[in-house]
Structure formats: C-alpha cells, structure tokens
Amino acid sequence: MKLLQRQSSWFFYFLPALIIYIVFTIFPIANSLRMSFFQGSGFNLDTFVGFENYRRLFFDPLISENFWNAFGNTWVFFLVHMLVQNTLGILFANLLLAQTGKWGSFYRTMIFLPSTLAILVTGFLWKLLLNPQWGVITMIAAAIHPELAQPWLGNSESALITISLISSWQWVGIPTMIFLASLQSIPNDLFEAAAIDGVTWWQVFWYIKLPLVRPIIGVVAILTFTGNFNAFDIVFAMAGINGGPVYSTDILGTYFYRIGIAGEHPVGIPNVGLGATVASLVFLFLFLGVMLIRVFTRERN
C-alpha cells in the first residue's frame, strides 16, 4: 500500500504541466473545432448551426471568394518553399558536408542567421529594400539586368512569389541543418566504397544519399507544410493585413486574422464562428497533409 502511494505521488510531478497544457492547448483547440458549428453575436456563440459556417465559407459568394483566394495563395506559398527553400536546403547541406573547418562553420552560421531574425524585421527590412522610392534592390537588379528592376511587391502578379522567396531566404537554414545532420549520420565507408567503384557524384547523391534521407525529406515537408499553413507575419509585414495588392498575397493566416479576429473589410466586425471554421479547416488540412506526407516518405524496405 505504501509502495502504491509512493508510486502514484509521481502524478504530482505531472500536474503543473498537465493543467497548463490542457487549459491552454487542448481546450482552446478543441473549442475552436466546436465553435465552428455555432453562430451568435460577438463571442457569445449560442446558436448551433451545423455545417452552415462551412457552407458559407465554401459557397457563399460574399465570403467564399476571399477564402478560396487565400487557400490557393497558401498553396503557392507552400510550393515555392518546397521548391526553393527545401531544394536549396538539400544543396547547402551537401556543400556544407564537404566544407569542413573554419569556413564550414562560417557558412553554416551565415545560412542560419536569417532564421534568428523576427519575421517582422525580415519583412519590414525587405519591404524597404524593395521600395522603388529608395531603390537599393532596384539599383542592384538594374545592374544585373534592366528587366529585373521592377516594383516586385507592387505587382499583383509578382508580389506573392516575391514574399514567398523572401520567406525562403529567411528559413532555408532549418532544412539545411536538418539535412546536414542526417547526411552526417550516414556511415563514411558507404561513400568510400562508392568512390572505389568509381561512382560519380550525381550517382552517390541519387542512389545513396537521397534514399537514406528520404524520411528526413518527409520531416522537412511536414515542417514546411505546418509552418506555411499557419504563416501570417511575413504577409502582414510586407503586404499588410489585406494581403495587398488586391488580396494577391492574402493567405489563410491573414484571412483568418481578418475574418475571425479583426473583422473583414468593409464590415469591420469579426465573425467568430467563421473564424473558428477557418481554424478548424487549417487543422484538418494539417492533419491530412501530415498523413499524406508520412505515407509518401516512409522508409521502404
């Protein structure tokens, strides 16, 4: 009996973390899911409406246009990160693997440096740099090729890609370090054996490294997906809360903020039920996305 008591008193070591975690993580997320089925005035959601919020978000022309626009833009944002940020990450990791010594750690520090900046600082800084009035980037771009000197953030065709590229500039250090760590864990004799067999660099990459880092690609894809579907700060800093020009950079994060928290133009009153619905959908996308990525990148025998 005494032993049992002694054992169960372990529970008190859990208690502080458990209470905080339940009240401020589990509860809010569960409640956001629940609130997506309700409507009311302000935070007083008293009317159960079933899937009405979802229907409005998907089909009500007044609301759905912005939702689908933000949804599509988020995919573009995500794809640019996958193509640019994560491809560069694999490239840099391979280069850093060969670059040892002092310079190796210098380059590593440089590649990771932007990831330590606040997204807000990155966004504001690049917004200034890209400002045609100041023209730092315009000046440098014009020196490379006159066609490159354009108001990249001002055009609705190029603004989203520009913002995605700057976000990739900031975060490329994370996939680089993850890939580097996994490449460093590949035993050296594998490369030595390959070198003796006269295998080319590309073959080593394609047949040895890539299959071995395959699960890690999954991890990176999941991180990118989760990060991008919750992104907010970079668009807020560079294009404002409406994802300008004309909603061309509006992503789910900014859309969620407007509709659920700040209030969408021109009404200006947040619709808490719809906001909760957007949050629930993001939750659903994340769940499905993570599942899919796991299936595709699982280790194969």
């Binding site: 009240v23 993580t25 509860f27 809010p28 609130m35 906001g275 949050a279």
Partner: peptide, 20 residues
C-alpha cells in the same frame, strides 16, 4: 499526450484563447 502538441500549432486555438 504532451508530444502530440508538437504537431498542432496553437494558433489554431487563437479564437478561444482570446475569449479565455
């Protein structure tokens, strides 16, 4: 239970956190 939180960004619960 704790580790599950790694995969769920808390921003999803923002609306309820604001109310709370």
């Amino acid at each position: 239970f704790f580790l599950a939180g790694l995969l769920i960004p808390l921003r999803i619960g923002s609306i309820y956190l604001l109310q709370l």
